[in-house]
């Protein structure tokens, strides 16, 4: 075995020099090009679209869905799905508003809403990771349960609180930038850092790429699975608080159908529903495209029913 050079023939590697591969290139930047084309189109044809205040309005209207989608990205990267985030938006908003009405200071009220979201995530995560149940079933069940809980807590009526102490969290500005937009940007920076620059992030991709191989490579798969649902719940809780602050009330119907918008943003952003592949930046672009489309169509006076 020591006469290495005489006996070992080098393995030829396939894909010597990669020729330009349009499909792969499009995979990476295609979505950005779609967004730019869309913005260009809207700037020309939608009146007032390109005004700075309108762009900030769009950004604010996107923020709730974008934050949900950030959490959803973590779940979908592990090959899962979380259908309960829309209902979590309602419950966490209700809890935050009720806490504020009870006299709790604003930061604590906001935190309580987020913690409710995280608690929902723990339920989802535990059932998926430790009981081995299908994410679709588990989160569909929790979605129905939480919606019912939101109705029960509000007795079916919106609870309006015009003096809501954390309403700036939904409608305030810092240096002309809406606070929800700042929150959204912070969420995405954290999410990007976690996914791209931590061991935990790599483990998420590994679990989604091949769960069995991840386990045998030393990844604690169950903990990772639980953690991604907690992250999705935390994001949903945050989104719920922002929504409640924006409408200055606890709405039992808040967030209905938002889970699908979030999933749409994630998938549009290039994350694979079969797990292990995708980028958080794609999700942000996906959410922006959805937001630009709906706002642009309104500005162009397309009646809302045909605009789906």
């Amino acid at each position: 075995m020591n006469q290495k050079d005489e006996t070992v023939r080098r393995q030829p590697l396939q894909m010597e020099k990669e020729p330009f591969d349009f499909a792969r290139w499009w995979d990476r930047v295609g979505i950005l090009i779609v967004l730019l084309a869309l913005v260009a189109f809207m700037s020309i044809f939608a009146p007032n679209f390109a005004r700075v205040d309108n762009l900030f309005n769009i950004a604010r209207s996107i923020s709730v869905n974008a934050i949900l989608a950030a959490g959803m990205t973590f779940v979908i990267l592990t090959k899962g799905i979380d259908l309960s985030v829309g209902s979590t938006v309602a419950v966490s908003g209700v809890v935050a508003v009720l806490a504020a009405i009870a006299g709790v200071p604003a930061p604590i009220a906001i935190l309580s809403g987020m913690l409710v979201g995280a608690a929902c995530g723990i339920v989802n995560g535990a059932l998926v990771a430790y009981m081995g149940l299908a994410p679709f079933i588990v989160t569909l069940g929790l979605m129905t349960f939480l919606r019912g809980l939101a109705y029960t807590m509000t007795e079916g009526q919106p609870i309006v609180s015009s003096s809501l102490n954390f309403k700036a969290f939904g409608s305030g500005y810092i240096a002309d930038v809406p606070i929800p937009v700042i929150t959204m940007i912070v969420v995405y920076i954290i999410a990007w850092f976690v996914l791209e620059r931590t061991r935990f992030g790599r483990h998420i991709y590994a679990v989604g790429g091949n769960e069995e191989a991840a386990e045998l490579a030393g990844v604690r798969v169950k903990r990772i699975l639980t953690a991604v649902y907690v992250i999705a719940g935390l994001c949903a809780g945050l989104a719920g608080v922002i929504f409640a602050a924006r409408v200055i009330s606890a709405q039992p119907t808040a967030g209905t159908g938002y889970e699908l918008d979030a999933i749409a943003a994630v998938v549009l952003g290039g994350t694979s529903l079969s797990g292990g592949r995708g980028r958080i930046i794609g999700t942000l672009i996906g959410a922006v495209i959805l937001g630009v489309l709906s706002t642009g169509l309104i500005l162009m006076d397309v009646p809302s029913s045909p605009s789906f």
Binding site: R202, Y205, G209, N210, E212, A213, A214, L216
Partner: peptide, 24 residues
């Protein structure tokens, strides 16, 4: 293929997955 590798992931990610703490 089933138990060892993450086929879609890069060669680097496949090799380093069990040793990531070394690089943190």
């Amino acid at each position: 293929k089933i138990q060892g590798l993450f086929l879609d992931h890069t060669v680097a990610a496949n090799i380093s997955i069990s040793s990531l703490l070394q690089f943190v």
